[in-house]
Design a protein around this nucleic acid. Structure first.
Lengths: 208, 208
DNA sequence: AATCTTCTGTGATAAATGTTACTGTAGGTT
DNA sequence: AACCTACAGTAACATTTATCACAGAAGATT
């Protein structure tokens, strides 16, 4: 099998992997697709096999605010939490790099919690890590000014891709931080003067 | 029994209630006690029987930021999430009104998930509602300005106590919103001029 | 090459929030 | 009453962030 579940989710037991392959459905989505909207009911738990999904909050005025990214081996905590009670989504999920996901019907999610220890642990760990990530986001906006938040944002990006280049326009960054492009340009320029980054068109190299 | 678990947690099954009473330990804490600190390891899951606990994030500079309050019938989601792996706390928990809590050793928390359906559902629901609350907090700081946040804060308080008076000093409010007392005073004065509140010493009456 | 579009840089200005400093007031204490 | 302390009001100023306006640079298209 091309995308071995067992490789991507190494902690799943063999029985669990078999059950998932039997009951879940693999689906592909192109970059740009919105997988989940605020207010929409959730019908599936989503495991990411390949690609990248952005989880963000949308303001009433249409502003965005990045919460975190989901990558292979991870799952959407919101879809898990909400599924349990078939609740509405509180967030937006948008594909940023073509993804392959495993969709798992909501009834199974609950059932497996009791039957598969490794599923239970995965779900709990997913909750925990996402909760932590959101807390970190709160920290950032509550206690830090824009320049620090920008640095943190860039660092998170380069950590995620494992490289030191961030291929984004200033406008894209501004959107995710819910600020304006000019502010991002200005702050980046200052960072460049401090020798922290090198600025190219559609690309920011982290130097430190 | 004075504080009947079954009354405060109506969804718990009778067996679960019995198990909790057998294994948990009731403890009282005075207002002002800090039950949990950032970085501290968590050894128990905490169920609130009586009183009120404030869950907040602490900035490096000592600033505070209110996440939410815990009241009778609720549990600390962080303690549940972290317990599962005996992780460190990411937040601060401070008693604001004398509390009685039920402490449950971490091993049992996990065990009961498998054995008691009503416990499982309670835990999941706790995760869900807290996650939602934190998302709302993010919304507020990300998309709203201080005057809107203040209004929201006051509303949440009066909703929580079921009355229209909020008995807090400007300083206390400022601390929880991580701003300064002067800003709160100014904004409250404006709200008073708009006829939204009436200001007294240590008290704010909501008029609308 | 000429044209267009997108991205970036930057000044000027406005608005929101934070900070400093000082005043007055209510309530408690002696 | 005299005093003290916590709380509240407010002016003046600093800083941060948002907004507007415009210009130039890098790529893409014709």
């Amino acid at each position: 099998m091309q995308h071995s579940l067992k490789t991507i989710f190494p902690n799943f037991s063999n029985e669990l992997v078999a059950t998932i392959e039997e009951n879940g459905s693999l689906q592909d989505f192109k970059a740009g697709t919105i997988l989940m909207r605020t207010g929409q009911y959730i019908k599936n738990t989503v495991l990411i096999i390949k690609g990248k999904i952005k989880i963000y909050r949308e303001g009433e005025d249409g502003g965005e605010f990045l919460m975190y990214y989901l990558q292979p081996g991870q799952a959407c905590a919101i879809s898990m939490i909400c599924t349990a009670k078939s609740e509405k989504s509180q967030i937006m999920a948008k594909v940023v790099e073509d993804v392959t996901v495993m969709m798992i019907p909501l009834q199974l999610m609950d059932k497996w919690m009791m039957e598969h220890r490794s599923w239970y642990e995965f779900v709990i760990e997913t909750y925990r890590s996402r909760f932590e990530e959101v807390l970190e986001v709160v920290d950032n906006i509550a206690f830090r000014s824009m320049d620090e938040r920008l640095e943190f944002y860039l660092k998170r990006h380069s950590d995620a891709c494992g490289c030191s280049e961030v291929n984004l326009s200033h406008q894209e960054i501004a959107t995710e931080l819910n600020t304006s492009r000019e502010v991002v340009s200005r702050l980046l320029k200052k960072m460049e003067q401090r020798g922290l980054v090198k600025l190219n068109r559609n690309q920011i190299e982290l130097l430190k």
